[in-house]
Design a protein around this nucleic acid. Structure first.
Length: 253
DNA sequence: AACATGGTCAACCGCTAGTTA
DNA sequence: ATAACTAGCGGTTGACCATGT
């Protein structure tokens, strides 16, 4: 088992992703899948290493990513699972639909660990639950506080209030979606509707907001017009024939 | 208002496991 | 059996932001 050669540092871009890079990556993955992360950036025309692309997709760009604060139930689930699984973040994430291992890891280190320590220091026999919230305390996000521990063997599903996408049926055996598949999947509601990870009505977040929200936060994209224009730009490119043509000379991975 | 401090989280690094030739 | 390679995982870092002084 040799070690993977280090990414070619020369010419490889690092640091925060731009909306344009996100767009390119999302476009490419929806068209061709991600059977080969190492080759992906080259084929997609990104100056990133495959690792970086993979991380970006998994932790941020996947359409089933759940955003927003963790509910008390989710936090409780994480603590319980951590107790049995330890620092196996990906295993924990597998039980929390829409949450990534990175996100769970962050939340553990920034919130949950401290709370647990605090509780332990208090003797651990207070009525305060593991979330540091009294039983009688109401949570601001009560409606969305339901946690769904899923059977990860079931096909991954994207759904919204109108339609349900079963990705497993839309991707061929090579993990590549046809243009028809994409057209069916990527209608206008893709960008504007609430995205959930199961068939319940629990709101996760609309993906439009999801994609841009953190860029706005971190990079001060405060112009809402710019924001809307950008998403329209994304959508247009997502569905345009031009993009298909641009990729038409790329060999299958 | 200016600075210091702490919290958050996206991204990177380095390792291991699995796969292929 | 072995080496080469990739994907995935967990740990860590550092930039940004909020809050306190």
């Amino acid at each position: 088992m040799g070690r993977a050669p280090c990414c070619e540092k020369m010419g490889m871009k690092r640091g925060p992703w731009t909306p344009e890079e996100d767009q390119i990556l999302v476009n490419y993955i929806h068209l061709y899948g991600h059977s080969n992360w190492r080759a992906l950036p080259k084929h997609a025309g990104l100056l990133r290493c495959g690792k970086s692309c993979r991380l970006r997709w998994i932790n941020y760009l996947r359409p089933d990513i759940k955003r927003g604060n963790f509910t008390p139930q989710e936090e409780e689930t994480i603590i319980n699972l951590h107790e049995s699984l330890g620092n196996r973040w990906s295993a924990i994430a597998a039980k929390l639909p829409g949450r990534t291992d990175n996100e769970i890891k962050n939340v553990w280190h920034t919130h949950l660990k401290k709370r647990l320590n605090k509780n332990q220091n208090n003797g651990g026999d207070t009525k305060e639950n593991i979330n540091g919230i009294n039983e009688t305390t109401t949570h601001e996000d009560k409606e969305s506080s339901m946690v769904h521990v899923v059977d990860t063997t079931s096909p991954q599903q994207f759904s919204n209030s109108i339609t349900t996408f079963d990705i497993s049926n839309d991707i061929n055996k090579d993990g590549i979606m046809s243009y028809e598949d994409i057209s069916a999947l990527i209608d206008e509601s893709f960008w504007s509707d609430v995205v959930t990870v199961d068939n319940s009505n629990h709101k996760i977040e609309d993906w439009e907001g999801t994609l841009m929200d953190r860029n706005i936060k971190r990079k001060s994209y405060n112009n809402s017009e710019l924001y809307n224009d950008d998403m329209e730009f994304w959508f247009e490119h997502f569905t345009s024939n031009r993009r298909i043509e641009e990729f038409s000379d790329i060999p299958e991975c």
